[in-house]
Simulated scan of single mutants.
Amino acid sequence: MSNAGGARSPGQLNTFKRLTSRPPHGETLAGLRTPPARSGHRCVADNTNLYVFGGYNPDYDESGGSDNEDYPLFRELWRYHFATGCWQQIRTEGYMPTELASMSAVLHGNNLLVFGGTGIPFGENNGNDVHVCNVNYKRWSLLNCRGKKPNRIYGQAMVIINGFLYVFGGTTGYIYSTDLHRLDLTTREWSHLKPNNPPDDLPEERLPCSSEMP
């Protein structure tokens, strides 16, 4: 964080802090709901909230038991408000994707973009669509795109730069990839970007991939 003069606090970039949960106003701690333990989910954040989408937990009781129709997956979206320390499960409309593990996600303004991922059985029920959830209106929609889409993959990295959505790497469950695809968010057209490097100068095929903004 910055102090009053705008300077960064010492250790800001290399200090972990555990975020605690507090009950919303008027509720007791016993009635506070938080996301169940999971893996394979995706987290994105802006200056106000942390969003958690999807995930997997094979423990029947931990994952919600009979109340979770998508067991062992989580077909749900959660929001953590930094200022209040409160979790909230966001009830959305529209078609939420069913590939709920190892997808890629990025927050672009008020829109959560989700691409790819895998369902049950893992590696045999993959996706290659872009689903968009407007977190203000709480509604999902499928982004209709042109061009040749990437393969149905999971474990890929994804980032938005200058109006383009880039997808790198991933796996079909059997074949690992270092392919780089780009989606023009204005024209909604996919293109496959071919590297100029020789084959021995490319990243190794691996899972999972990660990305960060420069």
Results as ranks from 00 to 15, higher is better:
Asp179Ala: 15
Leu19Ser: 04
Glu93Ile: 10
Pro203Val: 03
Asn126Leu: 10
Gly163Asp: 00
Glu189Ser: 09
Cys86Arg: 01
Ala7Glu: 14
Ser102Asn: 07
Gly147Ile: 10
Asp59Phe: 06
Leu142Phe: 01
Gly85Ser: 00
Arg182Lys: 10
Asp201Gln: 14
Leu32Glu: 09
Ser63Gln: 03
Tyr137Gly: 02
Pro214Glu: 15
Gly65Val: 05
Ser210Trp: 11
Asp59Leu: 10
Gln12Glu: 09
Ser211Trp: 06
Gly6Thr: 05
Tyr51Val: 07
Gly155Thr: 12
Asn151Tyr: 12
Tyr174Ile: 07
Gly109Ser: 04
Asp184Ala: 11
Ser9Ile: 15
Ile161Gly: 01
Leu193Met: 11
Leu165Met: 15
Thr34Met: 04
Val130Pro: 00
Val52Asp: 02
Val159Lys: 13
Pro199Gly: 03
Gln12Leu: 13
His192Gly: 04
Arg146Asp: 15
Lys138Ala: 14
Pro36Met: 05
Val167Ile: 15
Glu212Ala: 15
Asn125Met: 13
Asn3Phe: 02
Pro195Ser: 12
Ser2Asp: 12
Asn49Asp: 03
Asn151Glu: 05
Glu124Phe: 03
His181Gln: 07
Asn3Cys: 11
Ala37Lys: 02
Gly147Tyr: 12
Gly117Cys: 06
Arg139Thr: 14
Arg38Glu: 04
Gly123Glu: 05
Gly123Pro: 11
Ile153Cys: 09
Phe122Arg: 13
Gly65Asn: 06
Gly147Gln: 09
Val106Thr: 14
Gly170Ile: 08
Arg38Asn: 07
Val106Asn: 07
Glu62Asp: 15
Thr84Asp: 04
Met1Lys: 08
